[in-house]
Design a protein around this nucleic acid. Structure first.
Lengths: 346, 346
DNA sequence: GACGGACCTTGAAACCTTTCATTCCGGGGA
DNA sequence: TCCCCGGAATGAAAGGTTTCAAGGTCCGTC
């Protein structure tokens, strides 16, 4: 059974369509690309031949001839972090509006995968690449545009005016979070997140330090609980380490580098009956949808995710199509959303 | 500033590499595809010419000549549902192991987007398509394979032996969930989810009904709270509707068609001080990572997500490469994971 | 010194589409 | 009746890569 379906017969080309319709290749092409120049009768005949044969345009051939593709790509840092899938939605909106396909690739925070995707995309001759890089200083990020593939950096920036980039002010975000905690009277605060090699983490940490300093507290008041990634599991493990400390030295508040960490941490706190926010106030970062839905609704630093994506895609299209495009760095402002996890009320 | 960077100069072709290295086109091609047949000296010369000129292989041209691409695609139903991104990871593993690129597309549950992606992918001549379809009966799902693009259905099945598919027994999953609630003594149960046009929802509902019947309860004991989608927000709104009922008629337990709904519902319950599980037991579906991390850890029906993806990709590759491939339907068994949200203990 | 063979390299053809200068055709105006 | 014109259709060329049969070179052997 099903044996007859195995044969993937050679696909139909314009040549065969032309033969069946009794016209030349050029006419078939005109039907596809400039139907208004073809007489009604011919149009109908060719179209009927197409559907009769099941003709499908060969995009690679088209692209080879045209020299440019109708595709952009987004290489995201972590496909299972809702923050990035939301950014991707913004990109998608913009791509759709311009009749482009969007390919999403997930580097999963691994530099070698990022490299492999970028090289593949370059070979595909995509119209441009959006990327949240694992390593913002990777040389490949320079090479692509130099060789003709526009590239926009998303959720990161980079010194120099070699790229467009769209980001959110992570230092400010860190300040907002810790300012809030300081205002609530906390004086022993932990920063949970890592590795610091991730730019976003470093910036948020710097912001936290700045806020501590501005509050007149010593830098020793900000403990750094390092993690090896920004996942729920890592948050849980940070929670264990925190729980191991005696109440006297334990921080009274935690600022997590993202919401996944915060959610993991929160979960661990709940399971060991550490009260949030009474025993430990928690602030996350990103304000993903799950933040509001977690054990104790999470105070978090919100970033304009959709808009980030839309803007980035817009810049990419400009770079790809506008001959006198100038690189531009857009920096959005984050916003603190206060919820129960940081408010020691009733 | 930055003006000199605008020029996307014509990319380098093998022809220029050959000229610089002083060899023929064929030799350059050999260097790329069969380096072992080229003498060491020539190899070095050609490679140096390549890097000197910044040569990048033109994949569309390659594909045109070769007649097949090195790419597979996954069209997913909802990019912001962690379930699907986890499935995607499984697919990715398999693709990576076979040196294929994976393109992810997000149909966002909209049939017209699904159609548009499928048609684009077909034109791209991808090696095959994995899809979790919005409409499992869409005729396009037949047309693609008929015209030569293998297609595997993920997390759904379909009558007939026209496609490979990989799914999880959703009817059984529904039974597991409701069996559990019935065993706990619940006799007024609600099923939250919709629209029923989504196959997964229908099957889980059917399973729930079967369990109710098997327990000797009338079908009226299973209320259906319809939703217009499977999102956190819809779950919240279902929670509001539930809260509007007086305690006498309100169900004592809820089975949600997926975890996003359950998380939204849970959040709503917490905020209106409906106790979970004492006043309302909740069971979700998918066991996404956030399920364990939610307000009250969520009882949920676990599906082997990664394996689903891996297996599906494996079938796709078999269909694309094995001349005597036979269509196969794989059905995995779900598993109930019991957590606090359904256990009325201390 | 000629021959066979191993090892490299070559060049033309093919993949499918699009473009564009050219040809064809019928009709209206002079 | 002839010419010209516009609309419609044509066909060759181009785009970058890969394949493959054929050609070339060098060495060892007889």
């Amino acid at each position: 059974m099903g044996a007859e379906s195995a044969g993937a017969q050679r696909p139909v080309s314009v040549r065969e369509v032309a033969a069946l319709a009794g016209v030349s290749l050029g006419t078939v092409s005109n039907v596809l690309n400039r139907p208004e120049t073809v007489s009604a009768a011919t149009l109908a005949r060719v179209r009927s031949a197409m559907s009769q044969l099941g003709f499908v345009r060969n995009e690679p051939a088209r692209q080879l001839r045209a020299g440019r593709s109708r595709t952009v790509a987004y290489v995201m840092l972590d496909g299972s972090n809702p923050f990035f899938t939301d950014v991707a939605k913004g990109i998608e909106e913009q791509a759709e509006a311009n009749d482009l396909s969007l390919y999403m690739c997930n580097s999963d925070n691994r530099v070698e995968r990022e490299l492999s995707y970028l090289s593949r995309l370059e070979q595909q001759r995509v119209q441009g690449v959006l990327i949240t890089p694992a390593d913002a200083n990777a040389p490949i990020l320079d090479e692509l545009p130099r060789r003709g593939t526009p590239l926009v950096i998303v959720d990161r920036t980079r010194a120099g005016d070699t790229h467009c980039s769209v980001a959110v002010d992570d230092v400010l975000g860190g300040e907002l979070a810790v300012d809030h905690l300081v205002e609530l009277g906390h004086e022993r605060i932990a920063f949970v997140g890592g590795p610091l090699s991730i730019g976003q983490v470093r910036d948020r940490h710097d912001g936290a330090l700045a806020a501590i300093a501005r509050a007149g507290l010593g830098p020793d008041r900000l403990t750094h609980l390092d993690t090896s990634g920004l996942t729920v599991a890592e948050g849980r493990s940070a929670g264990e380490r925190l729980a191991g400390l005696s109440a006297r030295v334990r921080p009274t508040a935690v600022f997590c580098a993202n919401d996944l960490l915060a959610i993991g941490l929160l979960q661990q706190c709940v399971s060991i009956r550490l009260r949030v926010p009474e025993d430990l106030a928690i602030v996350g970062y990103d304000d993903i949808d799950f933040a509001a839905a977690s054990a104790i609704p999470l105070t978090s630093v919100r970033q304009p995710r959709r808009q980030l994506g839309r803007t980035a895609a817009g810049l990419l299209l400009s770079e790809a199509n506008d001959p006198d495009h100038h690189h531009e760095k857009v920096l959005f402002t984050p916003e603190l959303v206060v919820r129960r996890s940081s408010l020691a009320t009733s």
